[in-house]
Amino acid sequence: MKLEVLGTGCAKCKTLFENVQKALASAGKEAELVKVEDIATIMKYGVMSTPALVKDGKVLFSGRLATPDEIAGML
């Protein structure tokens, strides 16, 4: 599974990245996790409000944060 955190580098995006890490750790799952800051790539997903979480090329949510528990539930 490949996870991408989309964000232009604001505080919320960093928090989301950390929450995804926590979610993976608590669920005991392995995934390739990357942070995407490049605006062109973000645009390709059609995301306008950051931060956003993408799983295997599919946008799970955008424009908000999510708690580690919530993220674990989605994975």
């Binding site: 232009t8 580098g9 059609g46 995301v47 424009g63």
Partner: peptide, 17 residues
């Protein structure tokens, strides 16, 4: 509309696209 100022650029490009 709610959006955080760090979304300005994606919103800008999203709109003109």
């Amino acid at each position: 509309t709610p959006f955080c100022s760090c979304s300005s650029i994606p919103v800008f490009l999203g709109f003109i696209s």
